[in-house]
């Protein structure tokens, strides 16, 4: 157990020395703050638009049919979910790659294994060190979120909102670690590190960007700016009544999206933050009950990743002797 902790500590220290990593981390934190700022301005713009419409309607003796925009602070975090989806996955890939690249470059693995340390110790130690680092990183993002809320208008969260943020932090760590284990696996398995990195980027491209994009563009409601059903003046039950006749198409679209780990993470994140408006009025437990499959999916992928990393390190003799 001690060996694993020592390796974890060493991994953790090594990450701080990587310039690329600090650059990407700064980028993620900056984009988090910027995204909240942009969302706040959009919300303020909606409020002022509503107020001017209200004044106009009142001047002609009418009352508005729509309710005033209501601020749910977590709604402002849509961009943050998007950025963790995209940049968080790259950070995971980069960490997995660097963790193996340094061993290949310095040829230290053989030396390490001449000590009373097992391959299991090495894999678990590396995963633990990076898990800790990713946790600190995502907690920094959460800190930036809270600081931005305070800075833009003294917004404080309720206890339930803190719980939601905490669950989101845990899911984000899992999501990034899925990509870490993938990159770790490929960096050991591939002869060339550049090849491993490029393959990781291709997987990232397909599962993080392309599959969710295909699902989104197949959505009938996304075919008109502002939403097709809104343009038809439909409410939710009417929309559902129409879409019930296209269940096969919707099932295919859903299956395409479900192939992507990112979509599982996004669906849970959007539900927790109420970005899909229907979740704003739901209890936290109800949301978790509805999203259990997405959460279990992420967790399962992470576990599979750990086992695959242990397996490849035991199997790949070439890496050890390189």
């Amino acid at each position: 157990m001690n060996n694993r902790l020592i390796i974890a500590k060493k991994e953790f220290q090594d990450i701080f020395r990587s310039k690329i990593f600090s650059t990407i981390l700064v980028l993620l934190l900056t984009l988090t703050a910027t995204s909240i700022l942009v969302s706040t301005f959009i919300f303020k713009s909606q409020v002022s638009q509503y107020e001017s419409s209200l004044a106009l309607l009142q001047s002609i003796g009418k009352m508005p049919t729509e309710a005033a925009p209501q601020l749910f602070p977590l709604n402002l975090l849509r961009g943050v979910v998007d950025y963790i989806e995209i940049i968080g996955a790259i950070i995971g890939i980069l960490l997995g790659y660097l963790s193996i690249a340094k061993e290949k470059k310095t040829k230290t693995l053989k030396l390490l294994l001449s000590r009373p340390i097992t391959k299991m110790d090495i894999t678990i130690g590396k995963i633990m060190g990076h898990f800790l680092f990713v946790s600190i990183m995502i907690l920094s993002v959460a800190a930036i979120i809270l600081a931005s809320f305070l800075a833009i208008g003294g917004i404080t969260l309720t206890t339930v909102e803190y719980y939601k943020l905490a669950i989101f932090v845990m899911l984000s760590i899992l999501y990034i670690m899925v990509f870490f284990t993938l990159s770790f696996f490929l960096s050991v398995q591939q002869k060339s590190l550049s090849n491993a990195l490029t393959i990781c980027f291709v997987i990232w491209l397909v599962f993080v960007l392309v599959l969710p994009q295909i699902g989104d563009t197949m959505d009938p409601d996304n075919q008109v700016p502002g939403g097709f059903f809104k343009s038809m003046g439909f409410d939710k039950p009417q929309e559902e009544a129409v879409m019930a006749k296209f269940s096969n198409y919707e099932t295919t679209r859903d299956h395409i999206e479900q192939l992507s780990v990112t979509k599982h993470y996004e669906r849970t994140g959007f539900a927790l933050f109420g970005i899909k408006k229907t979740y704003n009025d739901m209890m936290l437990l109800e949301i978790l009950k509805e999203k259990w499959f997405d959460i279990v999916f992420l967790f399962t992928l992470f576990i599979i990743g750990i086992f695959s990393d242990v397996y490849i390190l035991y199997k790949d003799k070439q890496f050890i002797s390189s």
Partner: peptide, 15 residues
């Protein structure tokens, strides 16, 4: 938003 900009039909943003 990052993922919205990947849809050829852009959402409405009255910036």
């Amino acid at each position: 938003y990052p993922t919205s900009s990947l849809n050829p039909i852009l959402p409405q943003t009255n910036i």
